[in-house]
Amino acid sequence: MYKKFAIVTIVAVYFLILVGGIVRATGSGMGCPDWPKCFGTWIPPTSVEQLPENYQEIFGQKLKGEVEFSAVKTWTEYVNRLVGVLIGVFIFITLLLAFKEYRGLKTGIVKYSLIAFILVGVQGFLGSIVVSTELHPGLVTVHMLLAIVIVLCLIYALFLAYKYQGNGLETENRSLRFMTLILLILSVGQLVLGTQIREMVDHLSFGSLPRSEWVDSLLGGKFYIHIVLAVILLAVHWVLFRDGKKVLKEGSLKILTLLFVAVIVEFIIGGVLGVFDIPAFSQPIHLTLATIIIGLQYALFLIFGKSKRSLS
């Protein structure tokens, strides 16, 4: 039961990352100018008539800026918060199942499930700080990276559960493990670099420059590095796929194949962003795929590790 629900929880966290990407792509981050309530209520308004006449002054003073109500942006951000609460419930249930099935066993499953649950609380607190600082770019990036850490904790706990059961997912291979580690480090760097470019895009979206000229404005050091890294990552992932499929078992091979497909799709979407003037719909998909790739790389890093260690 634990393993099945842990997989559901991991997928749910990735869905939350997708929703967060949609919030950012639509500029809905300040759709709710306060936290945890939204415009002072637990259920946000659907029209400006439901707000006091001086709502801009009330919430503008709190945020030290102008507030303009938009039902679409408000509810987009509110749904993001609701999904976040639901994820917290999912991770709590995962923790309870881990305790029920693995308590008293030296597996680490309960410990890492607990760490994931604690980090969800930290993530919620950090979310309130992000709102109070009016979406400070650095905090937004930390908020996203913490979500990835939560996913990695859940993946590690799930891996330990499979290892304890003795499903034989592991295939010890030091060279492929090292290659996967390098890919993991590069992908995290690529993700952080991508968020910096995204901040530049956000800045352009508030200016008068037409969308058709955004890509030309982004041309420079970070943009070129991002492109070069994308090509390198695609090439190295091909080598990993070529060599890994020769040694991995059936279950682990599915993870490797999924990773390679995700990298190819991510590369294509990156091209779409550059060729078609950064369409908003592709931005959250690009971000979510990047985080999925990191999770799959981490899973393979664990799989290529030592297989003789006992968890009993």
Rank of each mutant, 00 (worst) to 15 (best):
G60Q: 10
H237V: 01
Q61L: 12
V72G: 03
S208N: 00
L184K: 08
V272W: 11
Q283Y: 05
K249S: 12
H143W: 07
H226S: 13
L191R: 06
L96R: 10
N80S: 12
Y156N: 02
G121A: 03
S47L: 03
L186N: 12
K100P: 02
E134G: 03
F92R: 01
I255G: 08
A157M: 00
Y102E: 04
A25F: 00
V151P: 05
G271L: 01
Q283A: 15
K246M: 13
G104M: 06
G60I: 11
F59A: 01
R242I: 07
K73L: 10
S70T: 09
R198S: 15
D277Y: 14
V215Q: 12
A161N: 03
F281M: 12
V140N: 03
V8P: 00
I43V: 13
F206I: 13
E213F: 13
G84P: 06
I255F: 11
G60N: 09
V149L: 12
M179R: 12
C153Q: 08
P279N: 04
V85I: 09
K254C: 07
L289S: 09
F5H: 03
V231G: 04
E170A: 14
L233F: 09
L209P: 00
V236C: 07
L181Q: 06
Y102T: 05
N173F: 07
S252Y: 05
M144T: 10
E250G: 00
E77H: 09
V79A: 11
S282Y: 10
L193R: 08
L169T: 00
S113T: 13
G21H: 06
V263M: 02
S175T: 14
L233Q: 13
